[in-house]
């Protein structure tokens, strides 16, 4: 009995010690420290947008010699919005527009945002180099990728296609690229067959398709351009009998449909009052065209960047998408739309 008591006493002491450590740690750095360090602009979100934000952050810090710091994380579009709507970041990178439930979270936390498309990306469907198929219709793509599809041979897609075992590769379900592709091809975001090889790392998809004669996969145009020698990119026929291949031109002029998508940054509207954040966002927008080209994306027309720079200056909050991931939007269409902060109210069209 005494020994048992001793044991209990020992355990209690250990717990108290841990608690004391935790308590003495509590008033420590984090908040007090943030005020001593340089002002840091915090960016998090999509890994698709990461290369652009990284280049902007790098250029901006070089320009002001480290007086303002910028950090960029890549916890994914969804993960980025979660932190953004908790007020933990100034800017959220996103490879799809903000969705209704994320708008709701942000609104509940009193976070409003300025939506700024920074570039276009062309989702590219790729096959093995030896595969003679050069184009597919969206309907054919849907027959392959829709939830529950059992197609496992190219011939089943179209009798004219070769007799090859089909193996599918794609991004993981947490990715904005996955959201966009499923919406564009299958008609419902996040609805896709599950027997494919998912990877958060697009290079794994490149590798998978490049080494698999019957392979098919999809990712952003930048990855195709770096691997043109190893893969074929399919031209996509939206249903009008005129297939269009992905390229800088076809994405920029809006003919590569429906797999062209804008990629965004969302800026906390209150944070835009701070001169450092405002300066950074202006730097980002005025250099976005160049950065897009350097990182493998397609720049928006110059007048679009001007309009978005103005919106940032005036802190015009809201999304032009109304909480839905719309497919095949052109910039002109986007610019003409009303901005909303709550889904449901003043839903466009």
């Amino acid at each position: 009995m005494r020994k048992l008591l001793l044991g209990v006493a020992g355990a209690a002491t250990a717990v108290t010690a841990l608690a004391i450590t935790a308590i003495t740690l509590q008033p420590a750095p984090a908040e007090a420290q943030a005020s001593r360090g340089a002002f840091t602009i915090l960016i998090d979100g999509s890994s698709t947008v990461f290369p652009m934000s990284e280049a902007a952050a790098e250029g901006f810090q070089a320009q002001n010699q480290g007086r303002v710091r910028v950090t960029v994380g890549e916890s994914g579009t969804g993960g980025g919005f979660r932190r953004f709507c908790r007020g933990e970041t100034h800017i959220s990178d996103a490879s799809r527009p903000i969705l209704a439930r994320e708008m709701e979270t942000c609104r509940a936390a009193g976070v409003s945002y300025v939506e700024i498309p920074v570039a276009f990306d062309g989702l590219t469907v790729v096959t093995h180099q030896s595969n003679p198929v050069r184009s597919m219709t969206v309907a054919e793509l849907r027959s392959v990728w829709r939830a529950g599809s059992t197609i496992n041979n190219w011939r089943q897609i179209n009798p004219a296609f070769p007799d090859l075992r089909l193996s599918l590769f794609g991004p993981g379900t947490a990715s904005g690229t996955f959201d966009y592709f499923t919406e564009a091809v299958n008609g419902t975001a996040k609805s896709q067959r599950t027997d494919y090889t998912p990877s958060e790392d697009d290079n794994v998809i490149v590798q998978g398709v490049a080494t698999n004669p019957g392979g098919m996969g999809y990712f952003g145009l930048a990855y195709y351009e770096e691997n043109q020698g190893r893969l074929n990119a399919l031209a996509i026929d939206p249903g009008n009998g005129r297939p269009v291949g992905p390229s800088t031109e076809t994405v920029a002029n809006g003919t590569y449909q429906p797999l062209s998508r804008p990629i965004f940054i969302y800026v906390n509207a209150a944070a835009l009052r701070r001169p450092q954040v405002q300066q950074f966002v202006q730097y980002y927008i005025s250099n976005a065209g160049r950065i897009a080209r350097e990182t493998g994306y397609i720049s928006l027309p110059a007048n679009a960047y001007q309009t978005y720079a103005q919106r940032a200056t005036q802190r015009q909050a809201g999304t032009a998408f109304g909480g839905r991931n719309e497919i095949g939007m052109t910039v002109t269409e986007l610019l003409g739309r009303p901005l909303v902060l709550a889904s449901g109210t003043a839903a466009p069209r």
């Binding site: 908040e31 943030a34 005020s35 340089a38 934000s53 480290g66 303002v68 890549e74």
Partner: peptide, 29 residues
């Protein structure tokens, strides 16, 4: 929340640009 792009060090040397905000600030500064 480990970050990917960090282009400064948490420690500094003399005669480097230094900026800071006065008073207690929240996470966003």
């Amino acid at each position: 929340g480990g970050l990917t792009f960090v282009a400064f060090l948490p420690i500094t040397q003399p005669n480097q640009p230094l900026s800071y905000t006065i008073g207690e600030v929240d996470q966003l500064g």
